[in-house]
Structure formats: structure tokens, C-alpha cells
Lab assay of single mutants.
Amino acid sequence: VSVELPAPSSWKKLFYPNKVGSVKKTEVVFVAPTGEEISNRKQLEQYLKSHPGNPAIAEFDWTTSG
């Protein structure tokens, strides 16, 4: 189950709350306009370098507050 949070234009930000008793931590995933899922800052940096014209990296908020 995921919750969609505010994201930069043409992107989606999905929040996957951890299940009770789960060892997996809460996860935030950005979905690029191409449909590619980005789950960490390093991936995001690589994606933005190879896909010019996207929002600046500073516009991506990895917190769950939206």
C-alpha cells in the first residue's frame, strides 16, 4: 500500500509506510515521467544527469511529510 505525496512537476512521490512488526524501514520512491522508480539520491542524481529538463535535485524532498 502506498500513499502519493506532493512531488515536483510531472513526477510522483510514493510513500510506503512500514507494516507493524516489519524490519523494512519506511520508504519514499519518486516515479519519473518515464515511469522509472527512483529510490535513493544517487539514482536520482544519475537520472537527472541523463535526462535534462527535469526539476533541480533540490526540489526533491525525501521526507514523508510531503
Rank of each mutant, 00 (worst) to 15 (best):
V3Q: 07
V3R: 08
V3P: 06
V3L: 09
E4N: 08
L5M: 13
P6I: 07
P6L: 07
P6E: 08
P6S: 08
A7K: 04
A7C: 07
P8C: 07
S10N: 15
S10D: 15
S10T: 09
W11D: 06
W11G: 03
K12R: 14
K12Y: 06
K12F: 05
K13P: 03
K13A: 02
K13D: 05
K13F: 02
L14D: 02
L14C: 11
F15P: 02
Y16G: 03
Y16I: 08
Y16W: 09
P17H: 10
P17F: 14
P17I: 15
N18T: 10
N18W: 10
N18K: 09
N18E: 09
N18Y: 11
K19L: 14
K19M: 13
K19G: 14
V20A: 12
V20L: 11
V20G: 11
V20N: 12
V20R: 09
V20M: 11
G21A: 08
S22D: 12
S22F: 09
S22T: 12
V23W: 08
V23G: 15
K24C: 15
K24T: 14
K25P: 09
K25L: 10
K25R: 13
T26Q: 13
T26W: 15
T26E: 13
E27K: 15
V28G: 01
V28T: 05
V29W: 07
V29R: 07
F30Y: 06
F30I: 01
V31I: 15
A32I: 00
A32E: 00
A32W: 01
A32G: 02
P33I: 03
P33N: 02
P33T: 02
P33G: 01
T34G: 06
G35P: 00
G35L: 02
G35I: 00
G35M: 03
E36L: 04
E36W: 02
E36I: 05
E36K: 04
E37L: 15
E37T: 14
E37H: 15
E37A: 11
E37S: 10
I38S: 00
I38E: 00
S39H: 14
S39Q: 10
S39Y: 15
N40K: 04
N40L: 03
R41D: 09
R41K: 13
R41N: 09
K42G: 10
K42C: 14
K42I: 12
K42W: 13
K42A: 13
Q43G: 06
Q43L: 07
Q43N: 06
L44V: 01
E45Y: 10
E45N: 08
Q46G: 08
Q46K: 10
Q46L: 13
Y47D: 00
L48H: 01
K49P: 00
K49N: 14
K49S: 11
S50V: 09
S50P: 00
S50C: 08
H51D: 01
H51Y: 06
H51C: 02
P52L: 06
P52Y: 03
G53S: 05
N54R: 03
N54D: 02
N54Y: 03
N54P: 07
P55Y: 05
A56H: 12
A58W: 15
A58G: 12
A58C: 11
A58V: 10
E59R: 04
F60K: 02
F60Q: 01
D61V: 06
D61F: 04
W62I: 02
T63A: 12
T63F: 05
T63L: 05
T64Y: 13
T64V: 15
T64D: 08
S65W: 08
S65T: 13
G66M: 11
G66Y: 08
